[in-house]
């Protein structure tokens, strides 16, 4: 269905993708995993024909650069965040994209019901919440029932609750027989959606594993986000370092990578040093296999 052959992409001097080759058969479901800058989004943009690159990508046999329109006819795309005319009505947006895809939806309402947006057709896009926007984007992507779905960090801007709902919607809708290509940071998404995981590092394919193997491997690290008053942060970091942790500053507190069996250790260390912790959050595993540090996304 999707064939990626020797794709190299440079932005100026820096090389973002180096000789990436991959074949995805119809109905396959592939997740791209990697740190920011590993080249996940770049690769997806190449598949969409948005970027020029060296090498060759075909979708359903259509070269994405030479016959981009035909290739993209086969793809439904959901971006990280839907950017579109804010004051457009939801039903207008659906009709607009349907026209661009050359199809006539029998009922816009039915399309919206399908993604859990019943009766929202008259709303303006700007009135939608982040989760609703992503549902709309999914509705647009599913117009014409395309054989390929490309999802680029689709839950990155959603809260935890929205994420869960959206992933379950995705797994329901993507259904059987559809080829899924997505980039993600989140284990639970990969567990829910992917059959295979392609691990990208610095623009190269590091490994390709089965998703079931991948999930187990991931539990190794978590990150504790501790909110600490600014004047106490340096001393807290020193305390933690002396306790064997590698804390990093992130503006409002410290990020402390922890092993899952020692998640509470930093609290004890800081309590002993009489440093107050205002708040904490346990960030689910997000480190990539090759990197011990953690990424935080806003």
């Amino acid at each position: 269905m999707i064939s990626i052959q020797g794709v190299t992409k440079r932005f100026g001097r820096s090389t973002v993708l180096t000789d990436v080759s991959l074949d995805v058969l119809g109905g396959g479901s592939v997740a791209f995993w990697g740190a920011n800058g590993a080249g996940k989004s770049t690769l997806l943009r190449c598949v969409l024909g948005l970027l020029r690159f060296d090498g060759r990508i075909t979708v359903g046999g259509h070269d994405v650069l030479r016959a981009g329109k035909h290739a993209r006819m086969l793809i439904g795309y959901v971006p990280q965040e839907l950017g579109f005319y804010d004051d457009l009505r939801v039903d207008e947006a659906v009709r607009y994209f349907a026209r661009l895809k050359g199809i006539a939806p029998r009922s816009v309402d039915a399309v919206l019901v399908g993604v859990g947006l019943p009766g929202q057709g008259r709303k303006r896009i700007r009135e939608l919440s982040g989760g609703m926007k992503q549902r709309l984007a999914l509705a647009v992507a599913m117009l014409g029932d395309p054989p390929v779905l490309v999802l680029d960090e689709v839950t990155a801007s959603l809260d935890a609750c929205g994420r869960g709902e959206f992933v379950s919607l995705l797994s329901r809708l993507s259904g059987t027989g559809r080829t899924l290509l997505f980039a993600s940071h989140r284990v639970e998404e990969i567990a829910a959606l992917a059959e295979r995981v392609v691990v990208l590092e610095r623009g190269k394919i590091e490994t390709v594993t089965r998703a079931s193997d991948f999930s187990g491997h991931l539990g190794a690290d978590s990150t504790l986000h501790l909110t600490i008053r600014a004047d106490a942060r340096d001393s807290a970091a020193a305390v933690l370092r002396s306790g064997g942790f590698a804390p990093r500053h992130n503006g409002v507190g410290l990020l402390v990578p922890v092993r899952s069996e020692h998640k509470a250790a930093p609290f004890r260390l800081l309590a002993d040093a009489s440093i107050a912790i205002d708040d904490f959050e346990l960030l689910t595993a997000r480190s990539t296999p090759g990197h011990a540090h953690t990424e935080v996304h806003s």
């Binding site: 109905g27 035909h70 086969l74 050359g102 027989g177």
Partner: peptide, 26 residues
């Protein structure tokens, strides 16, 4: 990896013509 493609998932879809897209965008 599922090598078979579910029936009906792929249709031979022709993209809208140049003029049609032009009109839509315009």
């Amino acid at each position: 990896m599922n090598a078979t493609i579910a029936a009906g998932a792929v249709r031979t879809a022709t993209p809208p013509s140049f003029g049609s897209n032009l009109a839509t965008v315009a």
